[in-house]
């Protein structure tokens, strides 16, 4: 129990508010971001010799 100091009703409402958000599915964009980071890193490892034409996100025209 983590209720030392945090009272019953308030604690309960706080937790259910938090849980309701936590139970929402993770937004796609975060999953995509992680994929991108992972991919960039793997490519970075295997192509250390080539000059980096892999850019994350930034493209100027």
């Amino acid at each position: 129990m983590t209720t030392e100091g945090v009272d019953g009703q308030i604690a309960h409402r706080l937790r259910s508010f938090y849980l309701s958000v936590q139970e929402e599915p993770i937004p796609e964009k975060f999953l995509e971001l992680l994929e991108k980071l992972d991919l960039a890193e793997q490519r970075g490892k295997s192509t250390t010799e080539q000059d980096g034409d892999m850019q994350l996100g930034s493209q100027d025209r």
Partner: peptide
């Protein structure tokens, strides 16, 4: 990191 993401997001929103 993925497994913590839902809680991290709840923290941010709170």
């Amino acid at each position: 990191l993925l497994s913590i993401l839902p809680s991290l997001r709840a923290f941010a929103i709170s």
